[in-house]
Every structure is written in structure tokens, then in C-alpha cells.
Amino acid sequence: MRRHRTAAGILLAVGALFTGGLVQAGAADAAPSAPSAPSAATHTASATAQHKARAFWTAERMRSATPLDLLLTEQAARSLRSPQAHGRPATVAPTPAASAAFPQAGGPWTGGGAVVATSGRVFFTFQGRTASCSGNAVTSQNASTVITAGHCVKYQGSWHTNWVFVPAYANGNAPYGQWTAAKTLTTPQWEAGEDINHDIGAAVVSPLNGKTLTSVVGAQGIQFNGGYNKPMYAFGFPAASPYDGTKLIHCSGNSSKDFLFSQDHSLGCNMTGGSSGGPWFTGFDEASGTGLQVSVNSFGYTFLPNRMFGPYFGDVAKALYDKAQAS
């Protein structure tokens, strides 16, 4: 699995655990709390900015984009050297953990089907550097909605720029084109305090050559408040070693609820940085490559290798989705 991210708040929670200060979690199947107003935080890209983004992402830039998680690792190291970096306490920013020594429940997706076209890489500029994540096209009223992770649209108070979605990305090639974001959105909880339980993002992409995204690549269904402890499939484009971002990678198995510090889903997987924002499906059919999206690749604990975590799609996620599909 990706040793994707370790949230800054997780380190604080670990400290609380050993001092007896961690509040006991609720019932095993308790869903995250209902959303607060507004339903989503939104950033709009001008037509000029979208044109710039489309021109910016050449094949070479896409190949050389660094997984966002690796950029955060570098930033964390700088933060440790300079405790007040970014105006924050001396806590480690989200980072990927070391690559797994051997794969666990993961590998290239060779089954074909709809997921090959609906899944893709996300490219953007973060603090002046090119970076990447993953995303997925879902059914929506506007036929133009992509679901990803919150940190793949906004991080440390700044919205990412030059944001594009490249479905079915293949080693610098964009067989279905580059779809620029007219709007990017995230949950109020991620916007306000980067709450790892609500690390969910969305993008509304502009038409390309007069056509909407899902009329070209298709779309996956999406489900909310579906519960925990189910068989799931996770997909993404990990680009940190041992992966290189050129292939769609998947993991599958029985999911569980995080028993440590979050309300997230948990799944055995060795995907690495760059897979953030890739979709998790329940009821996935291998023959057709279709399922219901219920989460995204979000983070991993450095002390718990070969396991990744994704936020629960409850009322907060539904409010975000509703805002995006109506845009």
C-alpha cells in the first residue's frame, strides 16, 4: 500500500494516548458527525487560469511531477529544522512513510473495464512546484465532477493552481485529454483545520472540445453512509518507489474501521505517494470495472506499514458532492 501520509494531528494523538489524554472513540460503526455550514469551501479558476493550466502540463512536466506526499516529506524535514515554519507548532506535516519491503494486496490493474477510463492522475502546482495525486470521475448532475482527496485541492491554507485531471493517464499520454478545473472544493472541516476524517476534495472540470467529462470517459456511482467492514477495491497512480506513476495500481480486500485515531476506513495496501485521492469502491465488479465509490486514498501511519486509510463518506461528503455536482 501507499505509505501515503501521516497526519500532523496523529503525532499529537499518539502523545495523548501515552499520557491518558485521548478520549475513547464511540461505537465501532458510528459515522462522522453531520456537516456544518457552509456545505463546502470553493475555489474558482478563471478562464485565463484554465487556459494557462492546459498549456502548462506538457507530457514532460507530467512525467516529472513529484507526488505531493514527497513534497510534504521534504517540507516536514524543513519544519523540523525550523520549528516555526509556516507559522505552525513544531509538528511533522503529512508525509509518506518508507516504501514497503514487499507488496501486500496490490499490483497493476489488468482487468480493464470502466475504471480504466474513470480513474486518472491529478496534476497541479503546489508552492511553485509541480505535483500529482489521483482522482475519479463520478456520476453527477453536471457530468463534470471528479472526486479526490482534500489535500489534493488545498493544503496549508492555499488552493493548488494549474489543476488538471488526466483520465486513463499512461506515461505522459492523455488519451482522453486534460480536463482543467473550473472549481475545486473541499469540506469545511478540511478547510478550517485539515481534519483527517474529512480529507475529501472535488473538482468541477470544464468541457473539452464541447463535451463533458463523463460523456467521454463514463462515471462511477457514489454512495454515502454505507457503513464499515466491507470488501473494497482501491485504485490510484502511486508515483513514489517502488511505483513510477505510469500505471493504474489497485488493492483489494476486506476493509475495517481505523481502531487508532480516526473514523476512517482501513485496507491492506502498499500504494505509495501519488495515489492520494484515488477511489475506493464497494460492490466492485471486476468484469465491468464498476462499483460505488465510498472513499479515497488519504493517509497511512508510519508505524503501521502496508495499510492505508480513507475517509468515511457520510453526510459531510454528501454535502460536498451535492455542492460540486450542482456547480
Score class of each variant (00 low, 15 high):
Y169H: 11
V164L: 06
N142S: 10
T145N: 02
N162Q: 15
S134D: 11
N136L: 13
S158W: 00
T145W: 01
A149Q: 00
W159K: 01
A137K: 10
F165C: 03
V166K: 01
P167N: 07
V164C: 09
A137R: 06
T148K: 00
A143N: 14
A168M: 09
V166F: 01
C133Y: 06
H151S: 05
V146R: 07
G157W: 05
Q141C: 05
S134M: 13
Q141M: 07
W159S: 04
V164T: 13
S144W: 00
C133S: 14
S134C: 10
Q141I: 11
I147G: 07
W159R: 08
C152W: 04
F165K: 02
W163C: 04
A149R: 02
V166E: 01
G150M: 02
G135N: 05
Y155H: 09
V166H: 03
C133F: 05
N142E: 06
Q156E: 14
T161K: 04
H160R: 05
S140Y: 04
V164K: 01
A137P: 05
N142I: 09
T145C: 08
S158M: 13
Y169M: 04
A131Q: 10
W159H: 00
W159D: 02
T139R: 09
C133Q: 05
S134H: 09
T139P: 00
G150Q: 09
A137V: 13
A143Y: 09
T148M: 06
T139E: 09
Y169E: 02
A143R: 15
V164W: 01
H160L: 14
G157H: 10
V166I: 10
A131L: 11
P167H: 08
S132C: 14
I147T: 06
S134G: 13
A168D: 15
S132E: 08
T139H: 06
N136T: 14
P167M: 06
A137G: 09
Q156W: 03
C133R: 11
S158R: 12
V166A: 14
V146W: 04
S140V: 11
N136M: 11
F165N: 03
K154S: 07
N142M: 08
V153F: 00
H151I: 08
I147V: 15
S134V: 13
V153G: 02
G135L: 10
H160W: 09
S158K: 11
F165V: 00
A168C: 08
W163V: 12
Y169D: 02
G157D: 03
S144E: 00
N136V: 15
A143C: 10
H160S: 10
V153K: 00
A149V: 12
S132I: 08
S132N: 14
